[in-house]
Design a protein around this nucleic acid. Structure first.
Length: 368
DNA sequence: AAGTCGGGGGG
DNA sequence: CCCCCAGACTT
């Protein structure tokens, strides 16, 4: 059985141990695989160019890493190209209004990232002379840069020999060591095992392991026959690699219900307002809604008008399901002073999260 | 240590 | 429907 990375006893059992001597990860094999199969990505310097002395731009690496937090490569590409076109340097981004950053981030999700992105750019310019710190420890002091992102930037840009552990690596290593507990309970052990393998080409190694997780050791399929870690992989030896990682018990997703009110003035403009600076969809643009509650309530219309019902929008957030009844009416503009009126043509440029684009769509306002 | 925080693509 | 994605931050 080799060395199962096992957490017998972390909490449940009195004695311990995990893996003081994890069997090694063959980083030369991983790098050789990467030299032939690296993905071509807009923010990446290829291993060939890297060998020729090309250095990654920390600004672009940082921007991509923040966008990629809990977000797929496919979803990020267009946003990355748009951001780097609008703001080619960290100084450009720092000088941009936060509103513009939120507008461009709209649709990508996890909007605290956009606020932290802007704050981080301003910190780099204001506190670091416009130059990103060149160590993981230094990077992690910046807003929106945590354990993973700091390690990724330090490895990719500066070849700091630090373990870069993301969701892909959680899966790859859980399989490699046939980890018999949820990854969250063994994060430190996995990081320690990975740290021992980090080679001089730390940046390429980090990207190689992530590519491996994205293309070979994928969530629902593991192409073990072409994997450079085939020989040492315990899950492969057991014969059912997709059994790992062990998943924690899933919490049920509660339902919240409410009403959304699309108000238009005589000229057809739509009434919009800003959400609070904290909490869900913080600082983004919305149409007015009722409170979102477990029980469906009667619509508390903001003004008296001939309200028309359009149907229901369903939107899935991470920890609850939202069902909004969508209403619209032509209203007199009196009393609506907290927000602003937007022409239908201008909606595409508003900082509207996907939820409210769905609402506007259902009310008959076509979005680009 | 557990909760909060989006959205989309693929099985 | 379900899962998962180059996680960070708060409590």
């Amino acid at each position: 059985m080799g060395c199962h990375l096992s957490l017998m006893g972390r909490r449940r059992y009195p004695s311990a141990m995990s893996l003081s001597h994890p069997h090694p990860i063959d980083s030369p094999a991983v790098l050789a695989w990467y030299d032939r199969h690296a993905r071509d990505l807009p923010w990446r310097v290829s291993p060939q160019d890297r060998r020729d002395g090309v250095r990654p731009d920390p600004y672009r690496v940082w921007l991509s890493e923040v966008m990629l937090q809990q977000t797929t490569v496919a979803a990020v590409k267009a946003y990355f190209l748009r951001f780097t076109s609008l703001w080619p340097t960290v100084a450009n981004l720092a000088a941009a209004p936060l509103d513009a950053v939120l507008r461009e981030w709209a649709g990508l999700g996890y909007y605290a990232r956009a606020r932290n992105l802007h704050a981080c750019a301003q910190a780099v310019v204001g506190d670091h002379g416009g130059v990103f710190p060149d160590t993981a420890a230094g990077l992690q002091t910046l807003p929106g840069i945590g354990a993973y992102t700091s390690a990724a930037i330090a490895a990719i840009c500066f070849d700091e020999r630090v373990a870069v552990l993301d969701g892909n690596l959680d899966r790859v290593l859980a399989r490699y060591y046939a980890l018999d507990v949820p990854v969250r309970e063994a994060k430190d052990e996995l990081r320690g095992a990975l740290q021992l393998a980090v080679p001089v080409r730390a940046g390429d190694f980090a990207q190689a392991m992530m590519d491996l997780g994205a293309t070979i050791c994928a969530p629902r399929a593991a192409m073990c026959l072409v994997c450079p870690l085939h020989d040492g992989c315990e899950a492969r030896a057991e014969g059912e690699p997709t059994r790992y990682p062990i998943k924690p018990v899933k919490a049920e997703r509660p339902v919240r219900r409410g009403h959304a009110f699309v108000m238009r003035d005589a000229s057809g403009d739509v009434y919009l307002q800003s959400r609070p600076a904290k909490g869900l969809l913080a600082g983004m643009t919305e149409v007015p809604t009722s409170d979102w509650t477990a029980e469906p309530g009667e619509p508390d219309f903001p003004v008296t008008a001939a309200w028309q019902r359009h149907g229901e929008v369903v939107h899935i957030f991470t920890h609850f399901r939202l069902e909004l009844e969508v209403w619209s009416a032509v209203v007199p503009p009196d009393g609506l002073v907290n927000g602003w009126w937007s022409s239908p043509d201008a909606l595409a440029g508003e900082a509207l999260p996907t939820l409210f684009r769905k609402v506007l769509n259902l009310a008959g306002l076509d979005q680009a």
